[in-house]
Design a protein around this nucleic acid. Structure first.
Lengths: 197, 197
DNA sequence: AACGGCGACTTAACACTGTTAACTTGACGT
DNA sequence: ACGTCAAGTTAACAGTGTTAAGTCGCCGTT
């Protein structure tokens, strides 16, 4: 049975090798350059092997995307433990979102189907997105206990503000330095959070 | 020389036929389904003919994108003539942007490289985008004559808010009705505009 | 009237893409 | 030594962007 375990482990390794390679190509050449054959070459296999781990390219992209949302969710939960003040919590979570997008733009791109990354599977029915949604809405609720509908609106506002600034900052980064965009981001988020009470 | 004029006109017609067909396929099947051969088939030509009008698919997409920005710019200039109050102007321009994105989502997608639309050519060095930027910044300036840098920041804020809400509203439209998103959009824009004075 | 050239257009090709069926190859148990 | 089975490969299909080469008919010249 050792052999089986060894086989299992190697399966896990090649699987994560596929994911790692996909992200690596995306980071260096953009998502449009990510192809099954290129991934297979990089992990020293032929293309059909990739299909033994992911039924389609779409499912591979979906996994990477969910990995991204999962990472974000863990960060949010960490912040929730560290800080008690809801204002501080929401602010720190916003900052984490910015930092994540700047540190791993290719992941952020696949999460939102940006710049050549295209995943047909809808984002909406993902447990990770749902979990993130719940965390943020709970925080908003803790310091404005309004109706569910109002909370949803405020969540939508927060998400839009953050996502809009992140995508435009990336798009305009040649013309407007990222540090300046980040400053505006921090100010805007702070103002939004203040406005909640 | 009539023949030449006639040829010219027919050239213009096939050219716009290409653009029209590309947008039509994008609207119905998404940008990922737009291919040169499919366009050529639709206008009853073979694929290489398309290359006599557009040197590459990228340049075709760039033209459609600029067409979108141009349309938006004309709308902004129209609004500028109709209203004198800067608050009203900025609000109406925001509404136009929303309506444009909802009426022609495929154009909005190619303008921002969204959902499978991917154009390598950078958006930034487009005269249309520059013109729009100038219009909005001028309006912001007319009722807060601050430094160029502050104006740029406020412009970035406005653009982010609008773009973020539009993209997320489209993304979440199955889960959150567009009418509700539009209401939040209007409220947020109104609040932003009010906050300017 | 025959010929040359030219412009409009098509076919064929190249190197890719995602995806699947069919095949090879080598190790293991009987 | 033989059959089985899993791991992995090759080959193929239909499609992509893009370009070179070829066809075909018209028009002016000799």
């Amino acid at each position: 049975m050792e052999t089986l375990e060894r086989k299992q482990r190697s399966r896990e390794q090649t699987r994560s090798g596929i994911v790692l390679t996909a992200k690596d190509i995306a980071r260096r050449e953009g998502w449009q350059a990510v192809s099954i054959r290129k991934i297979a070459d990089a992990i020293d296999y032929s293309a059909p092997i990739v299909y033994e781990y992911f039924d389609s390219k779409d499912i591979l992209l979906d996994e990477i995307r969910n990995e991204g949302f999962h990472h974000l969710r863990l960060e949010y939960e960490r912040i929730k433990k560290v800080y008690r003040d809801p204002e501080k919590r929401l602010f720190e979570m916003s900052i984490v979102q910015w930092q994540f997008a700047m540190a791993q733009p290719e992941i952020y791109e696949v999460m939102y189907n940006l710049n050549g990354a295209y995943c047909v599977l809808p984002v909406r029915d993902s447990v990770e997105v749902e979990a993130i949604s719940t965390i943020i809405r709970e925080i908003i609720f803790t310091f404005i206990p309004k109706s569910q509908e109002s909370i949803q609106k405020l969540y939508f506002e927060w998400w839009s503000l953050s996502h809009g600034m992140i995508t435009l900052a990336m798009m305009l980064r040649e013309r407007q330095p990222l540090e300046q965009s980040e400053q505006v981001y921090r100010d805007s988020i702070r103002r939004f959070v203040r406005g909640l009470r």
